[in-house]
Design a protein around this nucleic acid. Structure first.
Lengths: 183, 183
DNA sequence: ACGTTACCGAATATACTGTTCCATAGCGAA
DNA sequence: TTCGCTATGGAACAGTATATTCGGTAACGT
């Protein structure tokens, strides 16, 4: 990829991320993004069709790192049948979210749009599918598998949102415990 | 209230509701609303400050009916210590949602915005607060009350959304059972 | 050093918002 | 019915945002 393209793309991502931590997605304009990124208007549209596509690509990039790490973790556990606490995948996920510098948390809060949440949940469902045995004891037989998986992912997102809306006072360990106790 | 005002208001509500069942809130313009409602631009802004306020007032009107009925039910149960299934409040809520002609279901689906969902959940939390004993057995002691109430409301909304996203194939009784089994 | 390509920046068409104006028709009350 | 009041219509308006177009320029990879 051309160095100019890469630099432009990164500048736009950086500007967009910074703006996202200040105001909600809906109120961010292309004008603001290109001002802060210091690129031309035409350049922006050469890279991204719309604001929404920009958000989508940003999500893909962010979640790629987060969930790849979590998935790797999940695979490790299955391979070596580790004796560690099997819920550590979700704990690591929360820890990753908290220490994260990419403003993912701001994006997950309800001040942002629900597009972001939908992308997040889509990836989360894949992760949950690898962790189903963890929740087998809690599952009532009458519940369809599809509902159950969606439910677990939903509760995780809801728990994170509750955490954020209430000032993130709890530690990642506590929040993970809440999640596992609630699901 | 002036008959003209009332008619205008109803025309705008009707047009807005019809549009909401066709496209998502964000893409609806004031121009479309006043075209369909057949009112002047100035008239719209005499009634509603913005599109968002229109949505808010519509929600208040819709939820007022739905939750008042549910609350009445809840009160009845407490007063007469009925022997009926104590989960009937939520069953009635789901039934009300299903038979509802006001397009509430379309609005609750993820195609709509999350403003609507937030308003819904706010009212739902009030209802859940009157029904806490129902869920007392499921609550782990380590969970804070505030988290628990929010969790129950979240699971209800998530269940309804799953129902809608999957084509509303299940009966209200089944969905209520799923909700109670999942929470 | 070369041809290619991304970029700038300025201009442009289009669309939506929210406000203002006055004339008019409908309203409630005497 | 009559009268004063007010909601409405219709149109114009400024302000803002989107998305596209263009030719000149500078940076790129080979």
């Amino acid at each position: 990829m051309d160095r100019r393209q890469r630099k432009t793309r990164e500048a736009i991502f950086a500007a967009f991320t910074a703006l996202l931590s200040q105001k909600e997605f809906a109120h961010i304009t292309v004008g603001e993004i290109i001002d802060r990124a210091d690129v031309g208007r035409a350049t922006f549209y050469a890279h991204f069709e719309t604001k929404e596509f920009l958000l989508k690509e940003l999500c893909e990039e962010l979640f790629c790192h987060i969930f790849d790490a979590a998935h790797g973790e999940a695979c490790d556990h299955r391979h070596i049948f580790s004796c560690e606490a099997p819920d550590s995948v979700f704990l690591h996920l929360v820890q990753h979210l908290q220490r994260n510098d990419n403003h993912v948390l701001e994006l997950l809060s309800c001040q942002s749009n629900d597009l972001f949440l939908r992308y997040f949940k889509t990836d989360l469902i894949k992760l949950v599918n690898t962790q189903l045995p963890l929740f087998a004891a809690r599952k009532s037989d009458e519940l369809p598998e599809a509902f159950w998986v969606d439910h677990i992912a939903s509760v995780f997102v809801d728990t994170i949102r509750w955490w954020l809306d209430n000032g993130r006072r709890e530690s990642p360990e506590t929040i993970t415990a809440y999640f596992l106790a609630a699901v």
